[in-house]
Amino acid sequence: MKSLRNYSIPFTGLALGKHHFEFDVDDAFFDEFEYSLVKKADLKCRVEMEKQETMMILDFHITGTIGATCDKCLSQYPHELDVHEQQIAKFSDEAIDEDDEIIALGKNEHEIVLAGLIYEYINVAVPFIASCGDEGNTPYCDKEMLDKLNDLSANNEQDENPDPRWDALKKIK
């Protein structure tokens, strides 16, 4: 958790207005999260913070690559990310119903920790189905695996004898 301290912004001494911050998000960042979907990364996180009297508006722009595994050929490949998100942090001693859009900061707090937000934004941007691109035509694609999959699927189609019960069910339509 020590390395996550680098992903915070001390805001108490900052003047009102816009301020820019930049963070490197790499493998060490994701090592701090035990069950992370992402293990390897080379990302830049740029944060534009607009400090106002009663709140701060944080605009995140995360770009770079993460290490992903292709769901089809199982090869490792770099997946490009370009994430734009916004978060609002409000200064308040009262209990605010925290939701995904507003973070409550007490009057005694002097910094905002962004590690959880950055981690969440990156993991949400990870594709549900990862593909290394144009099948068989990228330098990352495992052509041996694709050939084996094609052979197996061709064999399954040839060996498959239709079950007569399915024919009876198709007649119901």
Rank of each mutant, 00 (worst) to 15 (best):
T54W: 01
F60D: 11
L74D: 02
A28N: 12
P78K: 13
Y35L: 12
F29W: 06
S75I: 06
G67M: 10
Y77Q: 09
K51L: 12
K40A: 11
M56A: 11
S36E: 11
A95H: 09
F91G: 00
T65H: 12
F91P: 01
I102W: 02
L43A: 03
D42L: 07
M49E: 07
L58E: 04
D59I: 01
V83W: 02
K44R: 11
E53K: 14
L74R: 05
G64M: 05
S92Y: 07
I103V: 13
A41N: 03
L74C: 05
E53L: 09
Y35W: 02
I102Y: 04
I103T: 08
Y35I: 06
F60Y: 15
D93I: 06
H79M: 13
D97I: 13
A104Y: 00
C73F: 04
V83N: 03
T63P: 01
A28Y: 01
S75P: 04
D26H: 10
M55C: 14
A104I: 01
D99A: 07
H84D: 15
G106M: 06
D31P: 01
M56R: 09
I66T: 11
A95K: 14
D27R: 15
K44L: 07
A28P: 00
Q86E: 11
E53T: 14
Y35G: 11
S92K: 00
D93L: 07
K90Y: 08
T69I: 15
I103R: 10
K72C: 10
M56C: 10
F60M: 08
L58V: 02
I57R: 13
L105I: 08
T65S: 13
F29P: 04
S36F: 06
I57M: 10
